[in-house]
Design a protein around this nucleic acid. Structure first.
Lengths: 252, 252
DNA sequence: TGCCTTCGTTCCACCTAGCGGAACGCCGTT
DNA sequence: AACGGCGTTCCGCTAGGTGGAACGAAGGCA
């Protein structure tokens, strides 16, 4: 959790958003000096910004500890923009239906730069291995959903290259193998997750009119819970769901 | 959708957040002049602020129409603060279980000032009448969840008074009747929704240690779908769920 | 076709308001 | 008692926000 001071553009506005971001991402209330240190700000500057955020209702200060934290107002604001999102709106019914049909965890992702962004998720009532948080990002080539989208993206190879250098040595990305895999994905219509041990996952793109994929839906489950028949069943449900939803989105 | 200019505090920061709020709440991309008019800003000021928001990644401008809209970055930020929320975290499993048990729409609300704030919701796969958006606010006395919380709030009467004047003549609030109702709610342990025609709803508070209610869970359904036996079943599930969750939250 | 409105954008001089260093009062620990 | 770190406040300097004006482009109406 210790992080080096991050260089932030000057001016109140960028700094204010940086402070808000730090508060929002912190799992626990932060001290003033921690905020200042984290962003390389003067204590007085951080104090002024925090006071402004409190005045606007985006932050609060604990009376006893004096620590600062983000309020739910930021979430309220953000909830507005997601509810207006056409894909998210259209998907929720399909996701719920797919979750019921398969009994496993289903996710809706869209592409955001070189990442996939988890727009929605309905978790399985049965025990699960991993859970990615809604609103979080993961490099696209690392997920089934990302591969489903990249398989229909014109700049897929550039994404693979950039991601490879971004991940560096921590996790070597086999660009050649992934390029071949994307070709497979494009042919058979779905992608498979492979990098999380003990977890199987399948994803298919939402193909609206146009060659690009607007989003992807994925289904994931613990490996030992799905046999060969289960895999086929999941894939069948997944593909029909994505086809229905693509038709639905295309009609907007 | 037409609204009068809203008075906004001076200074970049409040104005920037006001612009962001306007963009986020707008269902469609906005013109520069619409933003400026809405907030009573000079066009140049609005333009400068919008440019800053674009630079920070919180807004985008459509290349063809020139219209401005909020990006998902705001939602990503907000998603961080909600996932850290202890009640929301603890509730999701219980909500899902309750939704399966009853088959109806379940919601999680907390109190925010004189409103209730919808933290989470799992909608019924069966047809439903109304749907309140996650992240939206409703005056507490108007909802079953709000009444469940107010029944255990020390300033309940003040909330009733303020809400009565806030709603004004549009919907007269019977403060005396509601006060009596809150007494009933406290005794029997759950509240009923009454103001939406054709919808029945039940809510119970999450009582952690301390006399106040931390949150409430509600179950709502179309009136014709639940008979007397169904009501009793829903209430039974609801109360046991809230009791389990209160114990869970209390152990944090 | 041509006038005219309205749009988004850019420019600029004024001066407000953000800036950071320093100092203050307040607890904890040593 | 002396100390270090905390949150907070003060203040002079000036960077940067401000709003009026002007500009070019894109429609709308006659």
């Amino acid at each position: 959790m210790t992080a080096e001071p991050v260089s932030i553009a000057e001016g109140v506005v960028p700094r204010t958003f940086a402070v808000l971001e730090v508060l929002a991402q912190s799992s626990e209330p932060m001290r003033l000096s921690a905020v200042a240190l984290r962003l390389g700000l003067q204590k007085s500057t951080a104090h002024r910004i925090l006071a402004a955020l409190i005045g606007l209702g985006f932050a609060q200060q604990s009376p006893e500890t004096g620590c600062y934290s983000a309020t739910l107002k930021l979430w309220e604001l953000g909830a507005n923009v997601i509810t207006e999102h056409p894909i998210k709106r259209a998907a929720s019914g399909f996701l719920q239906e797919l979750q019921r049909a398969t009994g496993e965890t289903v996710s809706l992702v869209i592409r955001a730069d070189d990442d996939v962004l988890y727009l929605d998720k309905m978790i399985s009532p049965r025990p699960i291995r991993f859970t990615t948080r809604i609103g979080s990002r993961v490099p696209a080539p690392l997920t089934a959903g990302g591969k489903a989208i990249l398989a229909h993206a014109s700049d897929a190879s550039a994404v693979l290259e950039r991601t490879a250098v971004a991940l560096g040595d921590r996790r070597r990305l086999d660009v050649a193998a992934l390029t071949a895999e994307l070709e497979q994905v494009r042919e058979r219509g779905y992608a498979m997750a492979g990098y999380q041990p003990g977890v199987v996952g399948f994803a298919a793109p939402i193909m609206t009119r146009g060659p690009e994929a607007a989003a992807a839906i994925s289904v994931s489950a613990p490996a030992e819970r799905v046999d060969e028949a289960g895999r086929r069943e999941i894939i069948e449900h997944l593909l029909s769901t994505c086809a229905s939803m693509a038709e639905r989105v295309g009609r907007l």
